[in-house]
Design a protein around this nucleic acid. Structure first.
Lengths: 238, 238
DNA sequence: TACCCCTAAACATCCGAGGTCTCTGCAGGG
DNA sequence: CCCTGCAGAGACCTCGGATGTTTAGGGGTA
């Protein structure tokens, strides 16, 4: 195994073992390199890799620190990974979202604070009468993010965040092409809100299922009969 | 933004744009460095980072290649990330697994091929009469992985894989300390198998829920009343 | 045809020098 | 006493080149 990979494992081990706690500062490059038995160049490669997945945070002129290691931060890195899957596996990602989103919505109906419910209502009111599709989708993302936060599970929240990004483009394309999609989204958002505000988890779950399934069904019907022209909608939405 | 980060973005862009397809070979280090306008050292940091998340694959003496970019490969990288969350957020990860596992099991009951169902049965039979806890958990991982594969959704499968790892230790600790846990696991596995083989998705979903909830409840009851001594079970399981 | 060896190509690792940024302590002014 | 501006030190950033290691593939031999 290359020394750089060994260094990655060792740094990981230092963190997992507790030798380095979140927020701690690492020894300076030269010192750590000597301690791990490799050159600064190789060490920098290891540090850079751990930076990409948000485990380390280097600040020029200051030092290298362990991040907070909170789930949202680490799973955010997954967004970067998900970005590489554009056209072909969108349906698979959406299918997972269809599983998680209703569950999160039901949890939100149970655990969301009244203040957060009020903010959810505010999000619904923010939208103009005849919003642009882009504004609608942006509002849609904020709406669902708020609900995901309301589930009280940061892991679930971050996961949904990562999964929602890639499908956003699909939703834009849908709004642009499918008649009534915009209005239907608003109605469903309102229904989800009502269910959460009324503390009815099962109703909230059902509305969320309907909501996500709408996008999924449209996307499936668009992709499947297109035959060899699968790439069109994804390309158009990019 | 550091040149290395720019390089990461540029390479990512080359892949997402299609300029570099899965399996393609990158230009040699020196050439690519010149093309991106940076030194080889900095380029290597970028390549190393993309290697960690399985986007690139460097083979010494040969060259650097784009991986297949399949979901399972890219989400496998998430396991590395999840490893950093050990004690404190295990319950959050388990809660997500509790959402996904039943859904995957239900899907498996619908989509799994007869051949795969037979392999599932084989897994059940592999276990000795009085298995060690370690063997049981290893078999448990394979069993659930087989089911996740059977869902037909590679994204779901990889996600469950990543989530199952961290809780494995907890399951071991449970098996070692909780009377009857081993036998109960075997019974539940058998029940899940029967439901899948009988093509009863809702029954399969329910058994999966029961199965995961068992671990979750035990873990919750162990962590909560422990007070300031939360770390004990996780530490003991490592 | 099958096997072995050798060479070229590409990555792995290291080193040292010069640049840039940030934090910190100190001095001066309000 | 507090705020502001100014170096100085410390730490990371970037570069370029030299040397070691590994792999793929061509060519020779039995």
């Amino acid at each position: 195994m290359p020394v750089t990979d060994v260094a990655i494992d060792k740094i990981k081990g230092m963190i997992v073992s507790g030798e380095l706690a979140p927020g701690d500062r690492l020894p300076k490059e030269a010192e750590l390199a000597q301690r791990l038995g490799l050159s600064r160049s190789s060490l920098r490669e290891a540090v850079k890799a751990l930076c990409l997945i948000r485990v380390l945070d280097v600040r020029q002129g200051d030092g290298t620190y362990v991040t907070s290691l909170e789930p949202n931060l680490l799973l955010d890195a997954m967004t970067f990974v998900v970005d590489f899957h554009r056209d072909d596996t969108v349906l698979d990602f959406l299918a997972v979202r269809r599983i998680l989103e209703p569950a999160a919505t039901a949890l939100a109906a149970l655990h969301m604070s009244d203040a957060d419910v009020a903010e959810l209502a505010a999000l619904l009111g923010e939208l103009a009468e005849a919003p642009t599709v882009e504004a609608l989708v942006a509002n849609d993302l904020k709406f669902h993010r708020k609900i995901a936060e309301g589930s009280g599970n940061p892991v679930l929240c971050s996961l949904l965040d990562s999964l929602s990004g890639p499908t956003a483009r699909a939703r834009i394309w849908r709004g642009l092409t499918q008649e009534g999609a915009v209005e239907r989204t608003r109605e469903q958002h309102a229904a989800i809100y009502e269910a959460i505000a009324g503390r009815e988890p099962e109703l909230a779950r059902s509305w969320a299922t309907v909501h996500v399934a709408g996008v999924e069904q449209w996307l499936r019907s668009t992709l499947t009969p297109a035959g060899s022209d699968d790439a069109e909608p994804a390309a158009a939405a990019s």
